[in-house]
């Protein structure tokens, strides 16, 4: 049985998507602003779990945004900031999952799919060509196919 009750008791309870709070911030450097936006987009809120801390209206997200702001202005690197977050909340906060032995399948998966697809494609293409050589197409099929080509192309 799931502890669904827990979800009701999270900090600041509700996650009113659509009521985003945004904070005007003064930046010492324009590049900091860009880094700030990129970072908070990639950190997942623990309270409103399907929003980044950039989008989340939870108080915790506001605190974390402020911490990111202060760390950037304090000269900390992006790595230091994500390390700060993962030390406290684990890899869960990262929308870009780190490469670990447990995520190799995730990162390599799509390439693997493409490889499988490519192999199947190559096999199919070879078979299709040789099929014509063997002349397995029935006369009726061929006739109909040619009619279709003439009709459609």
């Amino acid at each position: 049985m799931k502890a669904l009750g827990v979800t009701l008791l999270l900090i600041a309870c509700a996650c009113p998507a659509g009521a985003t709070v945004f904070e005007p911030r003064e930046w010492s450097d324009e590049r900091h602003r860009q880094r700030y936006h990129d970072l908070i987009e990639e950190l997942r809120c623990l309270v409103c779990q399907n929003q980044s801390i950039a989008d989340s209206d939870a108080e915790l997200a506001a605190d974390l945004r402020r911490i990111v702001f202060e760390m950037i202005e304090g000269g900390e690197s992006d790595e230091a900031i994500t390390a700060y977050m993962t030390e406290r909340y684990g890899d869960f906060v990262l929308y870009r999952p780190p490469l670990t032995p447990f995520t190799v399948a995730l990162w390599a998966g799509p390439a693997l799919f493409a490889l499988i697809g490519g192999t199947m494609l190559a096999v199919t293409l070879r078979r299709r060509r040789s099929r014509e050589d063997a002349g397995t197409l029935s006369a009726a099929d061929r006739q109909r196919a040619e009619r279709l080509i003439a009709g459609e192309d």
């Binding site: 990639e42 997942r44 684990g90 890899d91 929308y95 870009r96 999952p97 447990f102 995520t103 995730l106």
Partner: peptide
């Protein structure tokens, strides 16, 4: 049992 993981827009 490996824990929790988030996969978001970057991936």
């Amino acid at each position: 049992g490996w824990g929790t993981l988030s996969i978001g827009p970057p991936w």
